[in-house]
Nucleic acid binder design. Structure first.
Lengths: 118, 118
DNA sequence: CGACATACTATGCGGCGCATAGTATGTGAG
DNA sequence: CTCACATACTATGCGCCGCATAGTATGTCG
């Protein structure tokens, strides 16, 4: 782990799309918190090494918003865990955010290119 | 103007790259605050309609950081204005952020695609 | 001269990532 | 068996920054 010197800039980047990324992950299949943490760390080339203090409050927020729903699982072996899955609302939200994200990044790109070529 | 109901999501998106966008703009040529405001509103399909309360503090911060330098212009006609231009440090910062931004968005895209196809 | 655009300054709120700390159960090496 | 470590969730407070809001002051144009 050992999150090396997170710059403010990368913090702001992460902050801009935590919701989106988690919602997208849950489109695949329901997951519990810790599983999401590990999954994100594996993908995304180390850009998404969420702290627990980032993820869990985020999950509470998404649940409060009605976009995900959690249910406790008490397996025969292993620790109890809260499994989160996308609601119908959440699926809609994910699609909307995904589109908005694409539109926005295109706008940024056009500004960057324009300014780097003249 | 009349910024219609800015959603939290788009606020977070904007927040993630205000520095980058302004630095990129100033790569072209020096500009004063109000000019930047208008320029950004024109490009980027309405994604960057900064409030004054967003831009000016941002400029102060970038100046404090040593990335831009401001000098007062008192034209024969018209209002006095503070012209900001990129410093050498600022150019380096712009390039670095630009790269980081690209790397990051690629990571997000890969997560989005992966999750939308399975 | 009054309305509106131009142009900058100043202050405070609110949301959220992160740091930090705490709780508690499961597992595996010795 | 026990101690270290991984797993898994809960809780609290700080700090940054976009935004809202308000204020000041000089141009321009009908």
């Amino acid at each position: 782990m050992s999150r090396v010197s997170t710059s403010r800039f990368s913090t702001e980047l992460v902050r801009s799309c935590t919701d989106l990324v988690v919602l997208a992950l849950l489109r695949n299949r329901p997951m519990y918190g810790y599983e999401i943490l590990v999954n994100l760390a594996d993908r995304g080339n180390g850009e998404f090494e969420f702290q627990q203090g980032t993820l869990y409050p985020l999950l509470y927020r998404l649940e409060r918003e009605g976009w995900i729903a959690g249910s406790w699982e008490t397996p025969t072996t292993g620790k109890r865990r809260k499994i989160y899955s996308l609601t119908a609302e959440g699926q809609k939200a994910e699609r909307a955010r995904s589109k908005e994200w694409t539109r926005f990044t295109r706008a940024v790109e056009s500004i960057l290119e324009e300014c780097n070529h003249e």
